[in-house]
Design a protein around this nucleic acid. Structure first.
Length: 882
RNA sequence: GGGCCAGUGGCGGAAUAGGUAUACGCGUUUGACUUAAAAUCAAAUGCCCAAAAGGCGUGUGGGUUCGAGUCCCACCUGGCCCACCA
């Protein structure tokens, strides 16, 4: 038996053992055990594991192993978020199939994940690009479509002229294409969207019920961006409509959204977004139509980058000849068009109050528009005297007719009430959140299971049969939008020869003519398939449901299987998903709940955002910095146990911070593991001479060394509580302290073996391989001892317990963690001057008496009068004196 | 510009119902072992002062308190996210 710690020998051995024994497979029900669902964000199969993956998976694995030992039936699954653009890019660059590229990566990453020693249940693996998974992605999407939650609309998308393709927001870096670095434009295209906005209030409201970290909740609240305010109508005063049939009710006024109705008397002009539809309707009355059209054209072709750079410079043009009436002042005011007003928020039009809004102020200055003060900062409101620019705070309303003199809040209420009474406006709520744009003009994604049929749209009968039939225009011709029937799912992604995007921005799938051409499921005539694919965030919006029932061919997951595990008890992931994946999947589950597909409206009970690991130089790891730490090399050199334990030791896990990797510090962790190993060796030589009694866990024998016993119980307490709160760093510190004491202790003490076993068990979640090895050796030695002393060996016992991870987690005795004698700090006027030792539970008088016997403290008391004593029992005595 | 978070030794970090600041680890110094080095073991290690005594110390300045890293106010610095959101 080798006596040096050789991680290369023991780590593969136990990884194989655990997998063969199926130790980490989660059965749906285990008698007498509560279920616990621990979820980690599944990886994108990008090639090979980096340190970030280790941090994301190996550290939660500590918790998974701990919970098993505490007696929970733990579901700790893994899978691959396998659709996505990098596969397509790799295909274009290297001429390989995206499917091949993805599958090769998955295969390689599976091997690496096993080397990590994470206790995943591989029998439940989910891969989103497999037809048996995306079949159900398509099925759920169709339920949403039938319920009206998925719809098509013309939307502005990011368009790269050079690559001739649509880009996702994540692919636009500082207004440039991430691939070719040319400027990105906005282009209007027909897109699929999901009605996440319908759930804005539910998403906001249910957030309050979740025990999540406050900063995550706050980030989601800000993202949803609910604002209370009012919609106000500003009638168009002097426009003669040339053709009476063109007049619609909405042509007669400009409707704006404002959160500050109290400033309405200061609204000296209106501004429309360049895309505002009213402009077209008013064309015949616009005297400078050429100029206006030119401005709108320019705004359209402005790149994202230009918008960012020119944020401070306001541009715009007046609609000459058109004026509106401020319903409060009855004054005629001009209407402008400017790109600082966004079509996507509110009504796409604003009332400009340059006196009390910085942007309006800048615009008014630029174009010499009137600025009127209607709010006066109340004295002492914030002590700051305005106002070189606009005063945006609250205050007393002035110059506002009958509302003058009110405070902002009261004025808001009264003015809105007045507007409502006169049918000029109404209370309203607005959100920053926009509906989720889910179609992508890309190959490597889940096909949208929709068929377009011209004949069905043109046949009057089909609309009678299906009154909810939706139409969609393709190349100027209307088609009926037909969902693919359930028995024809999945719509499989076809093989292509060429994944290049087309000049017209349509999906590469549109080139698969045989695939596009399809029989209409409704009329049987010639029809064509939707060629866009779904955003990959859809694939990841429900994968955690599939883990509960991965093989099901009848439904996305059986209700009774989901009921065993859902909702997820703890979800660990990266902060970058706070307002994307985390919000999307909450919405997705709420939508499923509305359709009675699932019974709960929140998918995750607890959520934890981890930090990130930086390079040794404190910079983000990147190839260009040359500071990338390769986990494979570290595992080779120091072992998986040392790598994961170092990552756990580096700092608290549930904190969104950044920790630099340190080649020195990981060596310290390795040294610790070697000390634990060597201690086992030393004990073995000692113990072979001695007969030991029964195994110790949870049944502490009478111990001679009280101090060690106390430390052992304190260690159980500290390690247990720290793991529960994800403070692995301090749990490990405690294990180190405990180990240091054991090393110093008398190895001939028969209790040492039990103390050592305790160490191994507490160490097991952190460094599973070395702990299993040492534990199995102890078992072997123990069995040998028993044979020698003719004790009968319980065969059953050795059969059942084949791993340290089937051992129960130790419990501590609260009576044994308290010290008999305590050191009390003596302060004089708040300054520490010494310590006295007294019995635990000693009162103030006893402590003060002990101070009298301590000359090094007494000298500070000479010549002064004690006026007060503050005593904190067993901790501190502060003597206040003059 | 808005929101959130964080500033503690040479470094990662520890310490909250306000009560010994710097646990644990790294690094550094000295010693033991060694022909030597590595490894290991032992001791020291916040700053000022040769040392003792003493003083000063948790980004800065105030405040509350017998007592503040922790609570309150103002400010400085850094990080992350969102950004013309009316």
């Amino acid at each position: 038996m080798s006596s040096t710690y050789d991680h290369k020998q023991i780590e593969p051995k136990w990884q194989k053992h655990w997998e063969e024994q199926g130790i980490f497979h989660a059965a749906d029900v285990v008698r007498g055990k509560k279920n616990f669902y621990l979820l980690v964000e599944f990886p994108y199969p990008s090639g090979n594991l980096h340190i970030g993956h280790w941090y994301a998976f190996a550290i939660p694995d500590i918790f998974a192993r701990f919970m098993r030992m505490r007696g929970f039936n733990v579901l700790f699954p893994i899978g691959f978020d396998a659709f996505g653009l990098p596969a397509e890019n790799a295909a274009l660059k290297r001429g390989i199939n995206p499917r091949t590229w993805t599958h090769d990566n998955i295969e390689y990453m599976r091997k690496q994940l096993r080397r990590m020693g994470a206790s995943f249940d591989w029998e439940r693996e989910v891969v989103t690009c497999e037809p048996d998974y995306y079949r159900w992605t398509q099925w759920i999407f169709l339920q949403f479509f039938k319920a009206g939650l998925a719809y098509q609309a013309d939307s502005l998308v990011n368009w790269c002229h050079s690559c001739k393709t649509v880009l996702a927001n994540e692919q636009v870096i500082d207004g440039r294409c991430e691939r070719c670095e040319s400027a990105v434009m906005q282009r209007k295209m027909k897109q699929w969207l999901l009605k996440i906005k319908d759930f804005a209030d539910a998403l906001l409201h249910d957030l309050e019920t979740l025990p999540w970290p406050e900063e995550i909740k706050e980030a989601q609240r800000n993202w949803i961006g609910r604002s209370e305010g009012a919609l106000v109508k500003f009638p168009i005063s002097n426009f003669q409509f040339p053709n009476k049939s063109q007049i619609t009710n909405s042509n007669l006024y400009v409707e704006v959204f404002t959160t500050r109705p109290d400033t309405i008397f200061g609204a000296t002009y209106l501004v429309l977004a360049p895309e505002h539809p009213l402009i077209e309707n008013l064309e015949s009355g616009i005297k400078n139509l050429e100029e206006v059209k030119e401005y709108i054209e320019r705004a359209k072709t402005k790149t994202e980058m230009e918008r960012g750079q020119l944020q401070k410079e306001k541009t715009g043009v007046e609609l000459a000849g058109i004026r509106a009436v401020n319903p409060a002042t009855k004054e005629e005011i001009p209407i402008w068009v400017a790109d600082y007003v966004l079509m996507g928020y509110g009504t796409g039009a604003i009332m400009a109050v340059p006196g009390h809004d910085a942007r309006d102020f800048a615009f008014a200055q630029e174009f010499h528009l009137p600025i009127r003060k209607v709010i006066s900062p109340e004295v002492g409101a914030n002590g700051r005297s305005p106002v070189q620019g606009a005063y945006e705070g609250e205050g007393a309303v002035v110059n506002s007719g009958k509302f003058t003199g009110l405070d902002s809040q009261t004025a808001r209420e009264r003015i809105v009430a007045w507007l409502e009474l006169n049918k000029l406006g109404k209370r309203s709520t607005s959100y920053k959140l926009r509906d989720w744009l889910i179609s992508r003009q890309r190959y490597w994604g889940c096909p949208i299971p929709i068929i377009y049929c011209r004949r069905c749209w043109e046949n009057p009968k089909s609309k009678i049969q299906n009154p909810k039939l939706v139409g969609s225009e393709i190349d100027g011709v209307m088609h009926a939008v037909i969902p693919v029937p359930g028995d024809q799912l999945p719509v499989e992604l076809p093989e292509l020869d060429d994944y290049k995007p087309r000049d017209d921005g349509r999906s590469p799938l549109s080139k698969a003519a045989d695939w596009v051409r399809v029989k209409c499921p409704q009329c049987g005539g010639a029809a064509e398939r939707e060629t866009d694919t779904l955003d990959t965030f859809i694939d990841s919006s429900w994968y955690f449901l599939r883990y509960t029932d991965p093989g099901n061919e009848k439904v996305f997951a059986a209700q009774e299987k989901m009921a065993q595990w859902m909702p997820v008890n703890l979800y660990s992931g990266g902060a970058e998903h706070t307002t994307m994946h985390l919000l999307y999947s909450r919405f997705w589950i709420k939508a499923m709940e509305r359709l009675k597909l699932v019974p709960w409206c929140e998918p995750y009970v607890r959520r934890l955002n981890r930090g990130i690991i930086l390079g040794p130089d404190g910079q983000k790891m990147s190839k260009s910095h040359g500071n990338v730490v390769d986990p494979d090399e570290q595992v080779e050199r120091l072992g998986a146990d040392a790598v994961r334990m170092y990552l756990a030791f580096i700092g608290p896990y549930a904190t969104v911070g950044a920790y630099p990797w340190s080649m020195n510090s990981i060596v310290g962790v390795r040294r610790f593991l070697e000390r634990v190993w060597m201690l086992g060796n030393k004990l073995k030589t000692q113990n072979s001479k001695l007969k030991t009694k029964e195994t110790f866990i949870n049944k502490y024998p009478a111990v001679q060394k009280k101090r060690l016993q106390m430390l052992a119980h304190q260690t159980i307490k500290k390690v247990t509580e720290d793991i529960e709160s994800f403070k692995f760093n301090t749990a490990i510190a405690q294990l180190m302290t405990y180990t240091n004491e054991l090393v110093k202790a008398d190895l001939r003490d028969p209790a040492m073996r039990d103390y050592y076993t305790l160490l191994i068990v507490l160490l097991a979640p952190f460094a599973p391989h070395i702990a299993e090895e040492l534990w199995q050796r102890m078992r072997f030695a123990h069995a040998a001892d028993q044979r020698r002393s003719n004790t009968q060996i319980n065969a059953d016992d050795s059969e059942n317990v084949s791993s340290i991870f089937k051992e129960p987690w130790p419990k501590f005795d609260p009576r044994l963690i308290l010290e008999m004698k305590v050191s009390v700090v003596i302060q004089i006027n708040g300054k520490k001057r010494g310590m006295v030792e007294v019995l635990r539970g000693a009162g103030e008088e006893e402590v003060f008496a002990a101070v009298g016997a301590a000359p090094e403290i007494q000298k500070y008391l000479r010549g002064i009068t004690v006026t007060k004593k503050v005593y904190v029992k067993g901790k501190l005595l502060n003597i206040v004196a003059q």
